[in-house]
């Protein structure tokens, strides 16, 4: 990136020269999209039901800040509990399936097949069992993030160098010590990628569940505004969910860096 010369630093500078810089092209396209977003509905190029102007979207978010904040709070609460199920449960089962050979060869392929099933179709079961309150969101979000966490953890544990295990066992390490001091550190990068994908999926699961049947939450708010054709509010709600997902991703990467630094970076082979 730093090697690139900034276009337009000599007297031949013009649009063509400027566009030779890929970064300029990217920003120009982004600017055009934002400009289109603002201008197109105002000029009547697209129906205002389809697209609310950028400024109207932002204004709706500011005026309805209280409503958005309250519902975002509900979503956060469901998400926190769902993450406990997805990451805790998925991590524990993944650790078990990845480290016990007979389970790994039989159950793991079944788990990765289940991962291909579109889990949305299971949501009506959750509402039939747990109602349309917070419980069904927590359970469904937890299920959504469970499998990616399980598969990533199992894959991480599986790649642990067998030499370490043999060495530790011959020196009399207990099963707990082997998990704590060998398997977890070696599998950490893979587990963290499981945490990253699992958290993202859990968040999607909670919001999707709220969109389908709920009484509160950001997904519910989006659906409610859609049925009332409050286009600006719908766009602002979607924007909030994207920000939520981005924040989770950022938080995981911070934890990833912290956790990674407490273990030796390079694993040397024996």
């Amino acid at each position: 990136m730093s090697m690139r010369t900034a276009g337009g630093n000599d007297d031949r500078s013009g649009w063509i020269l400027l566009l030779k810089n890929p970064l300029v092209l990217r920003l120009a396209c982004l600017g055009m999209i934002l400009a289109f977003w603002e201008i197109a509905p105002r000029m009547g190029w697209v129906s205002p039901v389809m697209l609310a102007p950028l400024s109207a979207t932002v204004i709706s978010g500011v005026t309805d800040f209280g409503v958005f904040a309250r519902n975002l709070g509900v979503t956060f609460g469901s998400l926190a509990l769902a993450l406990l199920i997805a990451l805790g449960g998925g991590g524990a089962v993944g650790l078990l399936l990845g480290s016990v050979r007979p389970l790994r060869t039989t159950l793991l392929p079944i788990m990765s097949s289940i991962y291909a099933v579109p889990l949305v179709v299971v949501y009506p079961v959750f509402t039939a069992w747990a109602g349309i309150g917070v419980e069904s969101k927590v359970l469904f979000g937890g299920l959504y993030g469970f499998f990616p966490m399980l598969l990533a953890t199992a894959a991480g544990v599986r790649t642990v160098d067998g030499g370490y295990m043999v060495a530790a066992r011959s020196m009399g390490a207990t099963r707990f010590q082997m998990i704590r001091h060998i398997m977890l550190p070696a599998a950490l990068p893979s587990i963290m990628s499981g945490v990253r994908i699992g958290s993202a999926m859990t968040a999607i699961g909670v919001v999707v569940a709220e969109m389908m049947a709920a009484t509160a939450g950001i997904g519910f708010l989006i659906t409610q505004n859609r049925t009332m054709f409050n286009t600006a509010e719908v766009y602002f709600g979607v924007f909030l969910v994207v920000v939520l997902a981005g924040t989770i991703d950022w938080a995981v990467s911070v934890i990833e860096r912290r956790a990674g630094s407490s273990y030796p970076r390079k694993v040397r082979t024996l």
Partner: peptide, 25 residues
């Protein structure tokens, strides 16, 4: 260089929430 970051970012965005936008459109 111009558009790869764009697509990498969009790939990580939860796409299911955009469904209401598709209904409006």
């Amino acid at each position: 260089r111009a558009f790869k970051p764009f697509f990498f970012f969009l790939a990580s965005v939860p796409k299911s929430v955009f469904l209401p936008v598709f209904i409006l459109a």
